[in-house]
Structure formats: C-alpha cells, structure tokens
C-alpha cells in the first residue's frame, strides 16, 4: 500500500512536470500551428535563470523562481516576435527554425554554464518527507502537483474568463474566421507564447527541485515526453494535456518500478502507439 501511494504521488509529480511543458506546447500548436522544438529551451532558461538569481544575486527561492519564470516568458516572446513571426506563411520552415534554435540553445547554455549539471538551489523543506497513508513521500512531490494544479486552474480561468482566452479558444478552432471577425490573432500568438514560455520555465524550476540539479540537455529530454503528452492529449487542448500528463506520468512510474528502468519510457511510447492507432486525433478527439 505505501509503495502504491509513493509511486502514485511520484508519478503524478512527474506528470505535473510534463503538464507544465505540454500545456504551452499544446496551446501554441493548436493556435499558431507551430510545433515548437525550442520549448525545451524556455524550460532551461527558467531553470538556469532561477539558479543564476539565487546563486549570483543571492535571492531566496521564490523570488529567484519568479526571475526564472519571467526570463522564460521573455525568451518565448522574443523567439515568437523575432524568429517565428516572419515565417507564418511557411509552416515547415517554422519547425526547422525551432529545431535549429533548440540545438543552438542547448549549445549556448553549455558554453555559458558548462556541460556539467549545476546544483539547484532548492528550499530545504522540499528535501524533507511527509507520511501519507503509511508512505514516506518527499515533499517536492506535493510542490510539483500543487503548482501544476494551480497552473491548470489559472489556464482554465484565462481561457474561459478573459477575452484573450476566448480568442485563443476560437483561434484553435478556426484561425481564419477569427481574423474575419476583425481580430488581430497575431497578438494572441504572442500572448500564448508568453504563457507557454512561463509555464515551461516554471516546469524548469520544478525539474530543478525534483532532480536536484540542472543541465543543458534537461529541457530537450523533458520536451520529448511533453510532445508525447501533447499528441496523446490532442493538440490544442489544455485539459487533454492534463489528462495525458497524468496517464504518462503514472504509467512511466509504475512500469519503471515493477519492470526495469527504461521499460517505463518504452511503455509510454507503447501507450502513445496504442492511442494513435485507436484515435489518431488524440484522447480529446480533435484532429491535428
């Protein structure tokens, strides 16, 4: 029983990380049709930004994390404005540019901070444990799950209670018609990039807490699982991403524990394959 609880909470924590990366990825793809390979870079900017603010500026964890998240959002906005925006008529080229950016970005982080992982300044209480139903659970799991739930709630508020959210939801469905109503949908693209970048950067902060360190390649490996989550959840759906992130996190955690390391990842891909064969549009049924 206690193993089950620990595995579930750890799987949910992992799912929380995936969700933070996948939600922005899904919105960006759904609205702007951009498959954003540079999204892992926003994650890394958040993680390194937090580390830098804590280590060099001596800020506490929360203000440092705020700096990291702000930098992640800023990076995303700059990428959208400078690199993606001129290419909206050339969708394949957009993918290519984000691929180039992801490779160059990782190399740049490596040049700036070294190839070796740096120790992440996580708050002391995340290293302690709490007993839940007989299981000794590290506190960082609760942080991960709590933050992801808060982000999910905020995203839903944004999407369903604001005019920008209304434009985003409509744009995911039919972008041309949104412009034909006199709305400049490009501004919504930038907003979505900013939100996605901030969420990914927050994911980077939490990945730093969870893994204990930050390395240049971390964003890319999390990104691959976030892609899987997005495809399983259905592109453009935040709720679908949340559901798929939970499924992927739990499947990965349980199979890794009961089979072997590596089997977890393989079974996630198996889940992806099964979902795609049964419902090519993903769990939420929208076609990409």
């Amino acid at each position: 029983m206690s193993t089950l609880v620990l595995l579930s909470l750890t799987g949910l924590g992992l799912g929380a990380l995936y969700f933070l990366v996948a939600s922005g990825l899904s919105l960006i793809f759904g609205l702007a049709d951009v498959l954003n390979f540079a999204h892992g870079l926003f994650l890394s900017v958040g993680a390194y930004g937090t580390w830098w603010a804590a280590d060099r500026l001596g800020l506490g964890f929360v203000p440092a994390a705020a700096v990291g998240v702000g930098l992640g959002a800023l990076a995303a906005v700059l990428v959208e404005l400078l690199l993606i925006r001129p290419l909206y008529a050339r969708p394949i080229d957009q993918v290519l540019v984000t691929v180039g950016l992801s490779l160059a970005g990782v190399a740049l982080l490596q040049a700036g901070f070294g190839a070796d992982p740096v120790t992440f300044p996580k708050p002391a209480w995340t290293e302690e444990t709490t007993t839940v139903l007989g299981a000794t659970v590290p506190n960082d799991r609760f942080l991960l799950i709590g933050v992801a739930l808060a982000v999910l709630a905020l995203l839903q508020l944004f999407l369903h209670r604001t005019r920008f959210g209304l434009i985003v939801r409509a744009g995911v469905e039919d972008r041309a018609m949104v412009t034909a109503l006199g709305i400049n949908v490009r501004i919504a693209f930038t907003v979505v990039f900013a939100i996605g970048g901030a969420a990914a950067a927050l994911g980077g902060v939490l990945a730093g807490v969870y893994y204990g360190d930050v390395s240049p390649g971390q964003g890319t490996s999390l990104l691959i699982f976030a892609f899987i989550v997005v495809v399983i959840g259905g592109m453009g759906s935040v709720a679908g991403s949340a559901l798929a992130a939970v499924v992927v996190g739990l499947v990965q955690q349980f199979t890794s524990y009961y089979a072997a390391a590596g089997v977890g990842e393989a079974s996630v891909v198996l889940v992806l394959a099964m979902v795609l064969l049964a419902r090519p549009g993903g769990l939420t049924g929208r076609t990409a």
């Binding site: 540019v97 950016l101 992801s102 490779l103 160059a104 740049l108 490596q110 040049a111």
Partner: peptide, 12 residues
Amino acid sequence: SEPLFVLGALFI
C-alpha cells in the same frame, strides 16, 4: 567553441 551553436545558427 560549441559546434552545435554555430551549426544551429547557420541552419537558421
């Protein structure tokens, strides 16, 4: 000194 940075930038 990072080949992938130069290659990525060249590619873009």
